[in-house]
Computed example of a mutant assay.
Amino acid sequence: MTNLSHITCFLLDMDGTVYLGDKLLPGALEFLQQAKQAGSDLLFLTNNSSRSTAYYAEKLTRMGWPASPQDILTSGMATAAYIHSLQPKARVYLVGTQELADEFSTWGLILTSDAPDFVVLGFDTTLTYHKLQTACQLITDGVCYIATHPDINCPTETGYIPDCGAMIALIQASTGRLPKVIGKPNKEIIEAAFSRKPYSTRQMAMIGDRLYTDMATAKNAGITGILVLSGETKQEHLAESPIEPDYVFDNLGELAYRLRQTE
């Protein structure tokens, strides 16, 4: 029996959970409407650092769910906040999109390849060999190395494409170094989520399609983990995983249906 009546705030992954590409996944809008009608709070928590919070808010709104940038927390934003907390005017060599660069600049971080304090690897859909070459040289030279998130693949409507985790592996092969990772399932993005939504652990749940990020986030935060099989994780992966979600549903539509049954 599904009993989530104690949950008053849902942290929601987006890619593979709410939508795939430019299409809402089955039951996503139904679940969002039902959660809001029940008085639940929502925070969209994504590891995808290629886009800004404004982009995601506009995308959700265009799909039929009115959202503002304040409703979104990205791994890119969490990374910028983390670096700012360490060194407010830090010099950063960023391997990322222009949207991520703009977000870093709003935090007062200085983007440069000249004597940076940090190298930051994001999900860079504008990646070039020159960027990789520069990053690897700086990392080999000992510059502090941070990655926004560990996701290996990003789901799209036409299949999976290499994400930040794949680039981490490439850079490790070249430099022998691994980064500090900020996004799900790590404590820095969890702390950022709790600062945005200060509920008790019992009141919060993480909904997502990935065991090693979304469900590991729930485990690390001590909150309820709800896995949906609409994205990367398939039923056969569950038996092989050391991470066990509290609940498993085919998609958000099934979760909405189960929640209605317990009302």
Rank of each mutant, 00 (worst) to 15 (best):
G183F: 02
I161Q: 03
E157A: 15
D124L: 05
Q87Y: 07
L252Q: 04
P116R: 00
M215K: 02
C164N: 14
K234Y: 12
G225L: 06
G231K: 05
Y199W: 07
G64A: 14
L42V: 01
M63R: 04
P185A: 11
A192F: 05
Q70W: 04
H149F: 04
N153C: 11
L111N: 01
Q203H: 09
D246E: 05
D71C: 05
S5G: 13
K89W: 07
P185L: 07
L12P: 12
T262C: 09
K234V: 15
N220A: 13
F118V: 01
I190C: 10
M215Y: 06
K184W: 08
E254D: 14
T46Y: 02
Q70M: 10
F194Q: 09
F123W: 15
M14C: 11
M77N: 03
I168W: 05
R210A: 13
N3S: 14
L127Q: 05
L227C: 04
I171F: 08
P150G: 12
Q137G: 03
S85R: 15
T148W: 01
A28N: 02
D214L: 12
I72Y: 03
I189F: 00
S105T: 15
A38I: 04
N48H: 09
S40K: 15
E58G: 09
S105D: 11
D246W: 00
S195M: 10
A239R: 15
Y82F: 14
L24P: 03
L238S: 10
S68T: 13
K23D: 14
Q172P: 01
I171E: 01
L11S: 04
L100P: 00
Y212W: 08
P242M: 00
L43F: 03
I243Y: 07
I83W: 02
S52K: 00
L252K: 00
P179I: 03
S230N: 03
L20W: 03
L259G: 02
Y199F: 14
R210E: 06
L259P: 07
G231C: 13
S174E: 14
M167S: 08
C136N: 12
I189W: 00
S174N: 10
H6P: 10
V228C: 10
P66Y: 10
E191S: 15
Y93M: 03
Y145V: 02
T46I: 12
N153K: 11
F194H: 08
E103K: 08
Q137P: 00
I7F: 04
G142C: 08
